[in-house]
Simulated scan of single mutants.
Amino acid sequence: MTTDTPARLLQLLSLLQTPREWPGGELSERLGVSRRTVRRDIDRLRELGYPVQASKGADGGYRLVAGKAMPPLVLDDEEAVAIAVGLRAGAGHALEGVDEASVRALAKLEQVLPSRLRHRVATLQAATTPLTSGDGASIAPETLTVMASTVAGRERLRFAYRAKDGAESRRVVEPYRLVSTGRRWYLVAYDLDRGDWRTFRVDRVDSPFATGTRFAPRELPTGSAAEYLRRSMYQRQESYAFTVTFDAAAEAVAARVPGWLGVPEAIGDGRCRLRGAVGDTMEWLAVRLALLGFDFTVQEPEELAQCVRELGGRLVRAGGGEGEPGGGGAG
Results as ranks from 00 to 15, higher is better:
residue 265 E to S: 10
residue 34 S to L: 08
residue 297 T to Y: 00
residue 72 P to Y: 09
residue 13 L to D: 11
residue 319 G to K: 09
residue 145 T to Q: 01
residue 32 G to K: 04
residue 186 Y to V: 08
residue 292 L to Y: 06
residue 205 V to Y: 04
residue 208 P to C: 07
residue 27 L to H: 10
residue 168 E to N: 14
residue 60 G to Y: 13
residue 202 V to G: 03
residue 188 V to P: 01
residue 32 G to R: 04
residue 15 L to H: 13
residue 27 L to E: 09
residue 278 V to F: 10
residue 211 T to F: 11
residue 178 L to Y: 03
residue 54 A to H: 13
residue 276 G to R: 02
residue 244 V to W: 03
residue 200 F to Q: 07
residue 132 T to D: 03
residue 118 R to H: 03
residue 320 G to M: 09
residue 151 V to S: 01
residue 184 R to P: 02
residue 296 F to Y: 07
residue 231 R to D: 15
residue 219 E to V: 15
residue 212 G to N: 14
residue 182 G to S: 11
residue 166 G to P: 06
residue 260 W to E: 02
residue 41 D to Q: 14
residue 197 W to I: 12
residue 96 E to P: 08
residue 263 V to L: 03
residue 176 Y to V: 07
residue 205 V to F: 04
residue 271 R to G: 02
residue 27 L to Q: 07
residue 320 G to S: 08
residue 103 V to W: 02
residue 273 R to F: 03
residue 71 P to M: 11
residue 331 G to N: 07
residue 218 R to W: 12
residue 75 L to R: 02
residue 246 F to P: 09
residue 40 R to I: 09
residue 236 R to S: 15
residue 158 R to D: 14
residue 194 R to M: 06
residue 104 R to L: 09
residue 20 R to G: 03
residue 202 V to N: 03
residue 155 E to A: 02
residue 311 L to E: 09
residue 217 P to E: 11
residue 270 G to R: 08
residue 146 V to D: 01
residue 88 R to M: 06
residue 193 D to Q: 08
residue 121 V to P: 00
residue 15 L to E: 13
residue 323 G to C: 11
residue 74 V to H: 00
residue 274 L to W: 02
residue 160 A to K: 05
residue 51 P to L: 08
residue 54 A to E: 14
residue 159 F to H: 05
residue 318 A to W: 13
residue 88 R to S: 06
